[in-house]
Computed example of a mutant assay.
Amino acid sequence: MDKVSLKGVIDLHVHSHPDIRERAYTDFQLMEAGRRVGARAIVIKTHHGTTMDRAYLVNEYNKKVYGDNNFQMFGGITLNAAVGGFNVVAVETALKLGAKIVWMPTTYAENHLKAYGKIGGIKCIDKNKRVLPEVEEIIKLIIKYDAILGTGHISPEEIFILVKRAKEMGLNKIVITHPEFWVVGMSHEDQIKIVKEYDVYLERCYAQPMGGGVYKSNLEDNYEVIKKVGCNNIIVDTDGGQVENPNWEIAFEEYMQYLYDRGISKEELEIMTIKNAAKLLGIE
C-alpha cells in the first residue's frame, strides 16, 4: 500500500527537554525533526510548568537560521503543583504570553496519584461535585484568549462534570487528554457518550506508560475508537518524547500508517492529523 506522509501534520502533545525526566529530543532537536518531515506545528508539553516561552525561543531560532517558513512550535501550561495548581494568575500570564493549551492537572491530579497508590493531589470538583470557582475563572480565561482546554489526568467523573460546565460557559475548544491512558481509564462507551453529548475532541495517543519504563501500544484501540466515533472528533497525537519509544516523527508515521493500512482514508487522516488541530490552534 501507499506510504503516508507527515507533510503538514500537527501534534498537540509532545514532551522534550528541558524536563525533569530524560527525553529523546531537546526543544531545538524536536523543531529540526518537525521541519525535516514537513510538519506544520508541534505543541510542546511539560508536567512542570509552562512551554509557550520555550516555543517562542525555538520559533525565533527557526526564523533566524532558516528564514520565514511554515513550521511553528506552540506551548501551554499544565496546572500541577509546580505552578500552584489552579493558579488563575499563572494561567492568565501564560495565555498573555501565547499559551495555546491549558491542561488540567496531570501527574499531580488526585486521580493520577490514586492510580499509583498515593494520596493527595488536586481535583477540579468539590465534594458536591461542582466545578471549583477557581477552575471556572480559568475557563473564562481560556475563552477570552481563544485557547484550548485539555483535561489532563483527571478521572472520567471529573471530565464529564468539567466538560458540561465548560460548555455551559461557552467553551468549545475542549480536548479529552488521552482517554485511553489507564490512569484516566475512560471506557469506549464514555468516549462515545462525551463526544455525542458535548462535541469534544478525543486525543488518541501512540502509546501509554504502564510503569517501570514499559509502554503499551494504543494503535489497535485507537483504530477501534476511530471507527466508532468518526474522524471529525479525533485528534491523532503521539504524547511522544520518551526514550523508551520511537522518536516523535517515527511514532507519528507508524501511527498514521497503521490506520491507513486498515482502511482509514488519507482524507480521514488529514482531518485527524491536520484539520482538527489546526482549527483548535487557529492556524487554518
Results as ranks from 00 to 15, higher is better:
V195P: 03
A90D: 03
E134L: 12
I174A: 01
V14Y: 00
H112W: 13
Q208M: 05
V200Q: 10
L269E: 08
M104S: 10
I101V: 15
K100I: 02
V175D: 04
D126Q: 11
E158K: 02
A99Q: 04
E157C: 00
G67N: 07
V183W: 12
E189A: 14
K266V: 04
K275G: 01
M186K: 11
D53T: 13
Y61F: 15
G213I: 09
A82N: 12
L280F: 00
I101D: 11
D2G: 00
T93Y: 07
N247L: 15
I10H: 10
D146R: 10
Y108M: 08
E249F: 05
E168R: 09
H17Y: 15
I119R: 14
Q29R: 09
A90V: 03
G38Y: 10
A207N: 00
A277H: 03
S155Y: 06
L12G: 09
D261L: 06
A39E: 06
K45I: 09
N233G: 01
H15M: 01
G263F: 02
M104L: 15
K64E: 07
Y66L: 04
H178Q: 03
L202R: 12
I122R: 14
Y25T: 04
T273G: 06
P156Y: 12
L171W: 07
P246S: 07
I274H: 11
V163Q: 06
V229D: 09
M272Q: 02
M169F: 05
M186V: 12
D190V: 11
Y201H: 11
K228G: 01
K64N: 03
D19T: 02
T273R: 10
E284R: 14
Q257M: 02
A99W: 03
R262K: 14
D11C: 13
F181C: 12
G49R: 06
T51S: 15
I176F: 02
L281K: 04
P179G: 02
A82R: 10
